[in-house]
Amino acid sequence: MSEHLVDIQNLHLSFFTPAGEVKALNDVSLFLDEGEVLGVVGESGSGKSVTASAIMGITADPGRIVSGKVIFNGHDIGSLDEKELRKIRGKEVSMIFQDPMTSLNPVYTVGNQIEEAILLHTEKNKQEAKERAIELLRLVGINEPEKRIKQYPHELSGGMRQRVMIAIALACEPKLLIADEPTTALDVTIQAQILELIMELKNKLGMAVILITHDLGIVSSMCDRIAVMYAGKVIECGTTDDIFYNTKHEYTKGLLRSVPNLYEEESSRLIAIEGTPVDMLNPPAGCPFAPRCPQCMKICLKEMPPYHEFSDIHYSACWLTQKAEFEEAGKGEE
């Protein structure tokens, strides 16, 4: 029995495309405890959304879990059928996305859509559902909710649509909210509102949050722990302070170095990560970051670095941090 709220164990998930197998997740292990906020960062295509969907028991065609396990709230997600999964989704775990327009139905009013979520998962009747919908809109900071429930999604601004999505996601007070780039399409001042709302609701309702983003600034202020993904692997994971101040993996270091610092008086040249992101159809052998890594060694090109633990919760997969083991392997080679 796992004691974590989410416990992903050695998950391998591939998309079997006509062009070949895309190993979207390559041995991902992650956990999340109740009430915790975990940030997941990484570039486009690194596997953030696929990981999140796997927790919900969703794998888009032609994808398949090849091996490994996802345990959520005591359920072994892989062993459940669609009907059982539907009971969990929306009730125990909810997800919000980057573009609320694609998840909201344009032909139904905002009220209809929130009420539907409530009716699906609770014993409430229509009138009670309507009252709850108004209460939820108020909870997510929408003024005049009695008026808003009669409106259609296109009549709302981007920020308000995201609030509506959050209201739907929270309809049944889930234990886990997965937010997949929830503010990428929003302006910074609206982003600040939504992020503050998510944190406020988390504190009020005591739910856990997985926050997927490519913005290191967002995770720095909101998350307890951060997982950094690259090419379908969690290459480093630790507390927010571990990741920012005790950085171990060369990719994480590169990422942190490459963002401009607003508060430096003299702009110094940015330190870019050279090269291009991994072609997931033809990933390199060994460490996936090797072709772009300034510290790349011989062994990096051949063998996938194993995880090394720096503490109970800080680990990374990089040969450099494992000098001792590396020397061992190097001896064997020569």
Partner: peptide, 15 residues
Amino acid sequence: SLISAIPIADPKISR
């Protein structure tokens, strides 16, 4: 408000 809304990639500062 625009400047204060920018997430800073440094936990000590952003907290």
